[in-house]
Design a protein around this nucleic acid. Structure first.
Length: 514
RNA sequence: CGGAGCGUAGCGCAGCCUGGUAGCGCACCUGCCUUGGGAGCAGGGGGUCGGAGGUUCGAAUCCUCUCGCUCCGACCA
């Protein structure tokens, strides 16, 4: 409901089984890869279960929209999506099937699309704030969806699958996949050592070599041999203590995927088993992270079994085709926007907004006639929220030793009325009366009239995480009062029978407004 | 795809190493008792030990294959 409240104009019909032709039109049938859950019908025709619905929605819009007068338009739906995840896990967090709210905006030009994007961005902020979540909106890679730019909404949690960085002094925040790192610049420093070949029997990993030669891992140049999905093999150089960001590399190379070259390829390219690769004398394309330019007196593999070089200097002993930002950001790196330093957090991605530009409208021919009668391509945006994941993330951030502590806006019930003894006619009548009074006031209330022991009913109420509990028992009724307990703090107070319903309703309204 | 672990009563597990009557907790059934924080006592029911094959006088236990689930990794340098 919360999501619906802040989403937009129209709800499209739900479609899950999508003919392959649509995905072929956008070229994503090939591009999306194994994550696309494909199936065949009885006539052996190809279909997929939609992992996201840019194609479907664009198809609907291209059939309906003729004129600029029909724009802007914003469509959304909340339904199951399907992704053949490489490893489904963590229950609701990453399943093959999940509920996603997805919205799509259609505008006459880029400026209009930017307005739509900004509105959705703000709406998403409000939704997640109202869910009681601690989160960050971060710049993100657009991945399989594509488009020009995007922001992810990341719930901060140590168990999160993503790492994000944020600047300690400005507003910059990004997924590490995306986080830019600046080129420190400068020229090659002057080396003090000569290139020397040393024996390193059996020392393959950075840790092994660094330990064997008694140098810091940062003094090593890590040489990765990678194979692109286009079949090209490239060498990438990084400082020994750094990790490659393969998304940055893919962007530089213009490919979709890179993977580590297999042992056979390593032997063919370097003439040595893996673990001894280095840039000195290496043939083929060599790319390097910015940091490598500043490295002298370094250690690299010698492309010879059980052998490394010391005293290696970039520029003197080998040359590099391109220096680029290729490594993963780490805590303490400089912010790309200001003089601040980056901090690293773990996060759960619960929402993602994209500026799509004309990627899908162009491919599928979604056009309109402008005021001058000219045909124009629609500008699109798309916006998603993982519904189940948002609830899971909210629970991750809001629980204690007794179970869930739901924030009021997303609680399945706002209040639970617990009858201590349902066999006591007076208790029963009082509880039912209160239940009715709360319903009248529009409160989402659950009545626990089970014939269970009080202890187990209290435990269940806690476990369910219902924010407020009203206990109706003979003990309180004797004094004409009922006990109201707050789940989060455990604070209890006795309220006069006649005032309970209104007082509780008022608290719910207050928490919803807050 | 690589690695590891687990499949024994409805649920959670022990037993397996060292083969010999299949067990515990919770749940369930009956009775008594009990109603403001997951009660107590007494009695009771329930299991092709994931599946197939093999070894053996005898297999939950050992061996082989197989199915399913979970976890880790998928950056070796």
């Amino acid at each position: 409901m919360l999501i619906r409240d802040w989403s937009s104009d129209v709800c499209s019909s739900d479609l899950m089984v999508v003919p392959a032709e649509l995905w072929q039109e956008s070229t994503r049938w090939e591009q999306y890869g194994k994550e696309l859950l494909r199936l065949k019908d009885r006539k052996d025709a190809d279909f997929c279960l939609g992992p996201t619905h840019e194609e479907v929605i664009t198809d609907i819009v291209r059939r309906e929209v003729r004129s600029y007068r029909q724009l802007p338009l914003n469509l959304y739906q909340i339904q199951s999506k399907f992704r053949d995840e490489i490893r489904p896990r963590f229950g609701l967090m990453r399943g093959r099937e999940f509920i996603m709210k997805d919205a799509y905006s259609f505008d006459v030009d880029e400026a209009g699309a930017d307005v739509a994007y900004d509105k959705m961005y703000q709406a998403y902020r409000r939704i997640f704030e109202r869910c009681g979540l601690r989160f960050r909106a971060v710049e993100a890679d657009t991945g399989n969806i594509g488009g020009s730019s995007s922001h992810e909404f990341m719930v901060l949690a140590d168990s999160g699958e993503d790492a994000i960085v944020s600047c300690d002094s400005c507003e910059y925040a990004a997924n590490v996949e995306k986080a830019e790192l600046r080129d420190a610049g400068g020229d090659f420093p002057v080396p003090t050592q000569a290139l020397t070949k040393v024996a390193t029997p059996g020392q393959r990993t950075i840790e092994e070599v660094a330990g064997f030669l008694q140098v810091e891992p940062a003094r090593l140049i890590k040489t990765l041999l990678l194979r692109t999905d286009g079949g090209e093999t490239v060498a990438v150089l990084l400082r020994g203590d750094r990790e490659l960001n393969d998304i940055k590399l893919c962007r530089l190379l213009g490919c979709n995927e890179v993977e580590l070259a297999d042992e056979e390829t390593v032997r063919r390219v370097t003439g040595a088993p893996s673990g001894f690769a280095g840039p000195v004398g290496l043939k083929g394309r060599i790319l390097a992270d910015f940091e490598v330019r500043a490295m002298v007196d370094a250690v690299t593999g010698a492309n010879e079994v059980d052998t490394h070089y010391t005293g290696v200097a970039c520029g003197r002993d080998f040359t590099v085709e391109t220096f680029a930002d290729l490594r993963e950001a780490v805590a303490g790196d400089f912010c790309p926007r200001c003089a601040g330093k980056l901090e690293v957090w773990r996060g759960i991605e619960v929402g993602h907004v994209f500026k799509l530009g004309t990627k899908y409208s162009q491919a599928l021919g979604a056009t309109f006639l402008d005021a001058q009668g000219q045909e124009q391509v629609i500008f699109m945006g798309c916006y998603g929220i993982g519904v189940g994941r948002t609830v899971a993330a909210a629970i991750e951030q809001n629980h204690d030793e007794n179970g869930i502590v739901f924030p009021m806006p997303i609680a399945p019930f706002q209040v639970i009325v617990t009858m201590v003894n349902p066999n006591d006619a007076e208790v029963c009548a009082a509880a039912e009366k209160l239940y009715a009074e709360l319903l009248e006031r529009g409160i989402e209330v659950l009545l626990d009239d089970r014939d269970e022991r009080p202890g187990s009913k209290f435990k269940d109420a806690d476990l369910l995480g219902i924010p407020l509990r009203v206990t109706v028992g003979a003990r309180g009724l004797k004094d004409g009062a009922l006990e109201v307990q707050e789940r989060r703090s455990g604070a209890r107070e006795m309220l006069p029978l006649a005032e309970v319903a209104e007082a509780v309703a008022e608290r719910v309204r207050g928490a919803l407004a807050g």
